[in-house]
Design a protein around this nucleic acid. Structure first.
Length: 430
RNA sequence: GCCGGGGUAGCUCAGCGGGUAGAGCGCCGGGCUGUUAACCCGGUGGUCGGAGGUUCGAGCCCUCCCCCCGGCGCCA
């Protein structure tokens, strides 16, 4: 038997005999007539079952099938304005494959209940739409970098030390020795540019902070790139082209899902390179003019970042931060020793930082000095320092938070919905 | 880690001058030949987050603890 995708049925002729399989999304019974809305991965269609047509036994079988029961049904398609989407199937035969117990999610539950029942909530059209958007975003990132001559590589997740200090690491028992879950693949990518020149990786990253915001996860997908011979300017140009490519093609390929999610497509259409740029110094001036009590040299917080996002109606760069608030690997600007050649890319509409990048320090002596300056032990970074001793080159790279990108593009209120099984706070179930 | 809010029926919540618990929805049974979170009739429903304490008596007052939500910090 050939099974059709439900989404394909809506473009077929009335009278077509088709079979589908899926799950009962909604069900209504009126006397001797049962309406079931059958869902598969592509869509939902209403099916009408009448006792006079399928027989009493089959009718009773479907009568006993609750929401989320899995079914196979066959029948004729016909147009009916009373059906959602304007088409329905008039069932001639079918069977219940797996009967469902009473499904706990009815549609008015709170956050905690839904998170405890995430394994069931993932069947919702809302989360399904988000997952489809995410898939396409990942596909587009890979597609673009491959087209542009980049190599995908697979850095380790288990590491022996912090890439940068500060952020809390998850500790694991590695054959009796302490090891940590990676919070960035950057240093490993820096190794690989000496052979592949331009590399990217998609890996989970882990942060053990007990963050309490709608923008943080303990486990998230990190898209990182590193390019040999690239300076900060080249990297920023490449970054904005990447974001433009992903967003513009998403509008095209996932239009229906974005609309279902209630996303304002017009604001996404404005995501065209080049993006505006503002230096950290100018950002601080702006904040001061708007009554924020902040001094040059301090990092701005979430409230301040939100103020900045209102300056532009598309993503924009903040550049040249004081070196005191940025990690040692960022290259100090030769025109102004107080700042580094690093940038953040902030998404508009209050979404904030989605990418952080920089040109890397390529001088052995300067890097060593900065490691010591920031209180780290150079021995822990022996292999990272080594890279500067064997044909060092200018190079740059960035890290993009996949779930933050999805959250912004899909217009989500919370980052947890950009990942099927969110890990945050102490939550690790389901 | 800090600040704020909250944990009462399967779910969403009400109850608080202390007198030992209520609604809606769900669920179960019945009815209905066009439903869109269907509708109508009947039924079912609770260690009031945990442990101590005050009191004749605690969901309600006190102490400690646990869990959840939102904001900050940290960052992608």
């Amino acid at each position: 038997m050939r099974f059709y995708k439900i989404s394909d049925l809506f473009s077929m002729e009335d009278g077509s005999e088709v079979s589908i399989r899926g799950w009962i999304h909604r069900k209504f019974q009126v006397g001797k007539k049962i309406f079931i809305r059958v869902r598969d991965s592509s869509g939902v269609i209403q099916c009408v079952i009448e006792e006079g047509v399928v027989g009493k036994e089959k009718f009773n079988e479907f009568e006993g099938a609750k929401r989320e029961s899995s079914v196979v049904v066959s029948g004729k398609l016909r147009t009916d304005e009373r059906a959602p989407g304007g088409k329905e199937m008039y069932v001639s035969e079918g069977k219940v494959v797996g009967f469902a117990d009473d499904f706990p999610i009815k549609g008015y539950e709170g956050v905690e209940f839904l998170l405890d029942n995430r394994h069931l909530w993932l069947r919702s059209t809302y989360l399904t739409n988000v997952m489809k958007v995410k898939h396409t975003a990942l596909k587009l990132l890979r597609e673009f970098h491959t087209q542009e001559g980049w190599w995908e590589v697979t850095p380790p997740i288990i590491t022996s030390s912090a890439v940068e200090g500060g952020a809390t690491l998850f500790k694991v028992d590695y054959f009796g020795e302490p090891a940590y879950l990676s919070q960035s693949a950057q240093f490993y990518l820096e190794v690989l540019i000496y052979s592949l020149e331009k590399v990217f990786a998609l890996t989970p990253s882990f942060r053990a902070e007990k963050s309490r915001t709608r923008r943080h996860l303990s486990e998230y997908y990190h898209f990182e790139i590193e390019g040999a011979w690239m300076d900060m300017e080249e990297l920023m140009k490449f970054t904005e082209r990447t974001v433009e490519y992903v967003v513009q093609n998403l509008i095209d390929e996932r239009q229906k899902e974005l609309e279902d999610l209630g996303r304002d497509i017009e604001s996404l259409k404005r995501v065209k390179a080049p993006f505006e740029r503002i230096t950290y110094t100018k950002a601080i001036e702006f904040l001061k003019q708007n009554g924020v009590n902040i001094e040059w040299g301090n990092d701005y917080g979430a409230d301040e970042e939100a103020m900045l996002t209102k300056l532009f109606d598309r993503p924009f760069f903040v550049t040249h931060f004081p070196k005191t608030i940025k990690p040692f690997y960022m290259k100090v600007d030769e025109n102004d020793e107080r700042v580094v050649k690093g940038f953040d890319l902030l998404a508009p509409e209050g979404y904030g930082e989605i990418i952080g990048g920089s040109q890397r320090e390529d001088s052995y002596d300067v890097l060593l000095k900065r490691i010591v300056e920031q209180g780290y032990d150079p021995k822990d970074y022996y292999w990272y320092l080594d890279l500067r001793k064997y044909g060092s080159v200018p190079h740059s790279g960035y890290g993009l938070g996949i779930e933050r990108l999805v959250m912004w593009v899909a217009g989500l209120e919370h980052i947890r919905d950009a990942i099927p099984f969110p890990r945050f706070r102490e939550r690790s179930k389901p």
